[in-house]
């Protein structure tokens, strides 16, 4: 019987400091067979950790078209991530997954997309962006909102110039320094500044409070609930829909999510 809790060692090929508390790790499974079999959809996650320390869920943020390696962005937030931040190139992480369902990219293939990422929730948007850059479509345009507290929290900033060649990227910070050249305010303020494209599909990932206010704005724009996809964060242990930690109503964030269309979860108390 396949053991769903078995992890596979992956070597750290590259570490890129992204923000004051987050690093981007490029990983490759040591076993070429495992690497070859590893395929994921944008929005899916892996469980990564260290033997003897623990593990946790991390959104994959590399392109899903890249098969030789994968990337996760790790924010130092607890004991396990603190230990991961001490690792060096050549060290190993233990990985299992990918898990859950990502964004329905096939369904959205010919739709314009509005990507909304708040803080470290932005991580999962990078997969959608990188996939689009690799395989741009004449039938699809991307508008991307990235909201942070200050410039210290920006992720992937050295990639923005490249992204801007093909996508519209809007940055906003609520408490930036005086030198911040972009918009100041909350991510929802961008709706006052930017004309949202017609008939967009919306992909969002961020804290619950961001969802509450963003959903209000999306409703005003008349975007149907079925076109809004939200990625959720919850405590996870098993990642296969058994341990109950990540349950929302009758769904599990690990198994049925982490991405849910808004219509599916809007009536569930406490979901957002």
């Amino acid at each position: 019987m396949k053991n769903p809790y078995l992890t596979y060692p992956a070597k750290i090929l590259r570490i890129q400091k992204e923000s004051s508390d987050s690093n981007l790790y490029t990983l490759k499974f040591e076993d070429p067979k495992v690497q070859k079999a590893f395929r994921f959809n944008p929005g899916q996650f892996v469980v990564a950790g260290l033997v003897g320390f623990g593990e946790g869920p991390f959104d994959i943020c590399s392109s899903s078209l890249e098969t030789g390696s994968l990337e996760i962005c790790v924010r130092q937030a607890g004991a396990v991530t603190k230990r991961i931040h001490q690792l060096k190139i050549g060290d190993r992480l233990q990985i299992r997954g990918p898990y859950g369902h990502g964004f329905p990219m096939n369904k959205l293939a010919n739709r314009n997309l509005l990507l909304i990422g708040g803080g470290c929730g932005f991580v999962t948007m990078r997969t959608v962006i990188l996939d689009y850059l690799k395989k741009p479509s004449a039938k699809q345009k991307l508008q991307v909102f990235f909201g942070v507290t200050s410039e210290r929290d920006l992720l992937f900033a050295n990639e923005f110039d490249n992204w801007r060649k093909k996508i519209d990227l809007y940055l906003i910070a609520s408490k930036p320094s005086a030198a911040w050249p972009h918009q100041v305010g909350l991510i929802t303020n961008l709706f006052d500044k930017v004309k949202i494209m017609e008939k967009v599909g919306v992909l969002a990932c961020g804290p619950p409070i961001m969802y509450r206010f963003t959903l209000e704005r999306l409703k005003k724009l008349g975007i149907p609930d079925t076109d809004i996809y939200l990625s959720f964060e919850r405590r996870m242990d098993c990642a296969v829909g058994v341990c109950q930690h990540c349950a929302i109503g009758s769904f599990y964030v690990c198994k049925d999510g982490p991405v849910f269309s808004y219509d599916k979860i809007k009536d569930i108390p406490g979901a957002i």
Binding site: V51, G52, G54, D237, C238, V242, C243, Q244, H245
Partner: peptide
């Protein structure tokens, strides 16, 4: 009831 949590023990 069957929910569980996992730990690492040295």
């Amino acid at each position: 009831c069957f929910c569980f949590a996992s730990d690492q023990v040295f």
